[in-house]
Design a protein around this nucleic acid. Structure first.
Lengths: 145, 145
DNA sequence: CTTTCTGCAAAAGGTTTGCAGTTAG
DNA sequence: CTAACTGCAAACCTTTTGCAGAAAG
């Protein structure tokens, strides 16, 4: 159980970013949520306990947090999760409930084994996406300019 | 080198869908492209060699092809690839060039090994996304209604 | 012919940008 | 104070929906 809010605020300070109210609010929501939240979902969550910032600001805060590797973007939905809820090694392998968006972390390397473990934890794994990214031979060539 | 266009048209016929001009055009573009194409990218490609259909129609055709498992949606960008360019087993693991969108298939089960193989083929793998999906314990519970 | 499919128009979201005013440090 | 940040408004782009006309079989 790591302290995402604390970590995030410290990281912002380290990079000379200001600790504004909007940033604190977004961080607090992500720290307290066990599911991936879209920008608008974050807004709603904030609205439940105070005056929320503008959507635009939420987008900007998320971009910032992502650039600092504090949040992970879930591409198959439009959501964001606090990185502390995922493996610390930078390789994020979330398991996402297709109904409620709740997120669990897939630990370990071996894929089939990981699925078994999640099943043991009560999840029903019905699908997955594995997408690598990088540069194709042609673009690496073009790189050499 | 499989014949995507032929396979797709046959599958449409089998399911009593009509072989319209728009469907043929979209299928032809996907069959001829080695990269993931967005709906608008498909339009542009068609425009290069004829009168394109409406964007709306492209969306509808892609939905149809996806429902028949003829195309695979690339979630990390908004693109679609012909399934014949990916593994036939239904588990699609594309490797996508972050610059030009060119797609290669990641064959095999062992993840680290697959990365090595792509490297041997001249690709530079810089990142990946692995997302499982399914139902969390709470939602499985709710299922029992 | 009849049902399916398409195009057009319009709306609905999500996301981005510019700029003037506010605020953290 | 001053640079960084936010809110507002507007633009932009993607995607969806409804309906009347076109076309496949």
């Amino acid at each position: 159980m790591s302290d995402f809010a604390g970590d995030a605020e410290e990281r912002l300070r380290q990079h000379d970013y200001r600790l504004t109210s909007a940033r604190r609010q977004v961080i607090a929501v992500l720290a307290g949520s066990d599911r991936a939240l879209s920008p608008y979902g974050i807004l709603e969550a904030i609205a439940g306990s105070g005056t929320p910032p503008d959507v635009v600001t939420v987008y900007r805060v998320l971009d910032l947090l992502e650039s600092l590797h504090l949040v992970h973007r879930v591409h198959s939905m439009n959501g964001y999760v606090a990185c502390t809820r995922l493996s610390a090694d930078g390789c994020h392998h979330p398991l996402i409930c297709t109904r409620c968006g709740r997120i669990a972390e897939v630990r370990g390397e071996a894929f089939a084994h990981a699925v078994e473990r999640m099943s043991a934890d009560g999840w029903e794994v019905t699908g997955h996406v594995l997408e690598l990214s990088g540069l194709c031979p042609a673009c690496r060539e073009a790189e050499q300019t």
